[in-house]
Design a protein around this nucleic acid. Sequence first.
DNA 1: TCACCCATGTAAAGTGTTACATGATTAG
DNA 2: CTAATCATGTAACACTTTACATGGGTGA
Lengths: 204, 204
Amino acid sequence: MNASQTISLLGYALLGLIHQKPASGYDLRRTFSTTPMGSFSDSPGAIYPALRRLEAAALIRGRIEKSAGLRQRQTFHITAPGLAALQQWLASPITRLDIVRHMDALMLRFAFMDGVAGPVRSHDFLSRFAEELDTYVQELHTYFDPHHSAMPLSARLALESGIRGYEAQRAWARTAVVAYARTLKGRRPTRQRKTRQEKRGVPS
Amino acid sequence: MNASQTISLLGYALLGLIHQKPASGYDLRRTFSTTPMGSFSDSPGAIYPALRRLEAAALIRGRIEKSAGLRQRQTFHITAPGLAALQQWLASPITRLDIVRHMDALMLRFAFMDGVAGPVRSHDFLSRFAEELDTYVQELHTYFDPHHSAMPLSARLALESGIRGYEAQRAWARTAVVAYARTLKGRRPTRQRKTRQEKRGVPS
DNA sequence: TCACCCATGTAAAGTGTTACATGATTAG
DNA sequence: CTAATCATGTAACACTTTACATGGGTGA
């Protein structure tokens, strides 16, 4: 509830994973080193301090387990304020800045969205995402068209690569919106109908 | 030549831009705020200290200009060691880690490559890039195939988005390799033939 | 005169990187 | 016995972010 606390992207990644399933620091490190979440560093110097920050903010709580004869192991669980922080983060609007410089954060938010906020929110997020991508792609084109002939070949190609990347994201978002629309089959109230999310998907 | 100095990605971006054309801090800020290089922050708190670090390392040199009646303005030029550092950076191998976590750095390197190292190097870089992408895309698929059915829809889609993105990059790289091959028309010695780069493109 | 653009900077705070350290258990 | 894996941590360092500060010139 403390208004001044900020949470880094790594912090949200940890919070989201712990929400899916309680985990130790070591578990989280392994998630980062063995799954496509590998865009996060698995270094202990990043993860353990981040966990301590989350715990200090009361967003997670650790329980020491001495089950096997191994070294003590602390499993973290999410708290009510932790879940609230996660939901608030997922609900924040998509800005141009997010598109230009924080695509990774947007994708992370979306990855957690079904389990935390439900498929209706996921669908809404995707439509907004596609819209925002659309305007940015147009922006890139209006820069590219008059400038491209004066650029070195590699610079021009690099810019094209970026544009292609954003276009691919947009195409993906559009098909994903359709996938959700099919899943949410027909009736769908104006906004949402109680978030019942545990209905499908989430094994937790 | 100091072996211990490290240069941040922002530092290389500045170095590369200054190599293309001498510029002041303000010029560089405007490049970041008005072109697709906007993935870098245009905040003075990042740029001016970075410029001072580069200058302290003797990679760039600033000349004060008082041309118009405006406030003093310092234009930075690249030095011989600066160009060497840039070339060394561009020549460094493409690693898996680059693909997973530093795609932005790879694209930046490529954007500068024609002007600094010549089109032959650009072509070689792209082939290596496509190869490395290929193995990573396969890696992602071998993770995705057994896991996707157990993932929440949004998580699965987020992963698919990542895979699509890498595949788009790969497709782009392949067409770009062809574009270079056409440009380098026919004869092309085993390695390189003197780097003559000013032949085409670079307006500088 | 007021606001805005040019142009450069500083200071505090927080975070990630790198490298090192510790100690128990298990497989060969 | 040795190496690898489990499991957690600390310390130094450099970097980016954010916010503030300064001061001249220009257009309304």
